[in-house]
Amino acid sequence: MASRVFAALLASDTGSLTSADLAEQLRISPAAVSGAIRYLSQVHMVGREREPGSRRDRYQVHTELWYETITRRDQVLSRWEQTLRDGADALGRHTPAGERMAETADFFEYLQGEMLAIMDRWRERQIARREGRAVAG
Score class of each variant (00 low, 15 high):
residue 12 S to G: 06
residue 12 S to E: 07
residue 13 D to G: 03
residue 13 D to E: 04
residue 14 T to Q: 10
residue 15 G to D: 01
residue 15 G to R: 05
residue 15 G to C: 02
residue 17 L to V: 04
residue 18 T to R: 06
residue 19 S to E: 08
residue 20 A to H: 13
residue 21 D to E: 15
residue 23 A to C: 04
residue 24 E to Q: 12
residue 24 E to Y: 09
residue 24 E to L: 10
residue 25 Q to V: 08
residue 26 L to F: 01
residue 27 R to D: 15
residue 28 I to Q: 07
residue 28 I to E: 03
residue 28 I to A: 12
residue 30 P to L: 13
residue 31 A to P: 00
residue 32 A to M: 12
residue 33 V to K: 03
residue 33 V to A: 06
residue 33 V to M: 01
residue 34 S to L: 10
residue 34 S to Y: 15
residue 36 A to P: 08
residue 36 A to C: 10
residue 37 I to H: 02
residue 37 I to F: 05
residue 37 I to L: 00
residue 40 L to M: 03
residue 40 L to Y: 00
residue 40 L to K: 00
residue 40 L to Q: 02
residue 40 L to H: 08
residue 41 S to E: 04
residue 43 V to F: 06
residue 45 M to A: 09
residue 45 M to L: 15
residue 46 V to S: 05
residue 46 V to W: 02
residue 47 G to Q: 09
residue 49 E to Q: 04
residue 50 R to N: 06
residue 51 E to N: 04
residue 51 E to V: 13
residue 52 P to L: 08
residue 53 G to D: 12
residue 55 R to M: 04
residue 55 R to I: 12
residue 56 R to E: 10
residue 56 R to F: 11
residue 56 R to H: 14
residue 57 D to K: 06
residue 57 D to Q: 12
residue 60 Q to K: 13
residue 60 Q to D: 03
residue 60 Q to L: 15
residue 61 V to E: 01
residue 61 V to D: 01
residue 61 V to M: 05
residue 64 E to R: 05
residue 64 E to G: 02
residue 65 L to C: 03
residue 65 L to G: 00
residue 67 Y to A: 14
residue 67 Y to D: 15
residue 68 E to Y: 15
residue 69 T to K: 13
residue 69 T to W: 08
residue 69 T to Y: 12
residue 70 I to G: 07
residue 72 R to E: 14
residue 73 R to L: 11
residue 74 D to N: 06
residue 74 D to G: 06
residue 75 Q to S: 11
residue 76 V to R: 05
residue 77 L to R: 12
residue 77 L to Y: 15
residue 78 S to M: 03
residue 79 R to C: 06
residue 79 R to P: 00
residue 79 R to N: 06
residue 79 R to M: 07
residue 80 W to C: 12
residue 82 Q to L: 07
residue 82 Q to N: 07
residue 84 L to R: 03
residue 84 L to A: 07
residue 84 L to C: 13
residue 84 L to P: 10
residue 85 R to F: 02
residue 85 R to T: 05
residue 86 D to Y: 11
residue 86 D to T: 02
residue 87 G to W: 00
residue 87 G to L: 05
residue 90 A to L: 13
residue 90 A to I: 15
residue 90 A to F: 11
residue 92 G to I: 14
residue 93 R to D: 12
residue 95 T to K: 14
residue 96 P to F: 12
residue 96 P to D: 10
residue 97 A to S: 12
residue 97 A to V: 11
residue 97 A to E: 14
residue 98 G to Y: 11
residue 98 G to N: 10
residue 99 E to D: 05
residue 99 E to T: 02
residue 99 E to A: 02
residue 99 E to P: 02
residue 101 M to S: 14
residue 101 M to T: 04
residue 102 A to M: 08
residue 103 E to K: 14
residue 103 E to F: 12
residue 104 T to N: 00
residue 105 A to T: 11
residue 106 D to M: 01
residue 106 D to H: 06
residue 106 D to V: 07
residue 107 F to I: 00
residue 107 F to T: 00
residue 107 F to G: 10
residue 108 F to Y: 11
residue 110 Y to S: 10
residue 111 L to Q: 09
residue 112 Q to G: 14
residue 112 Q to K: 07
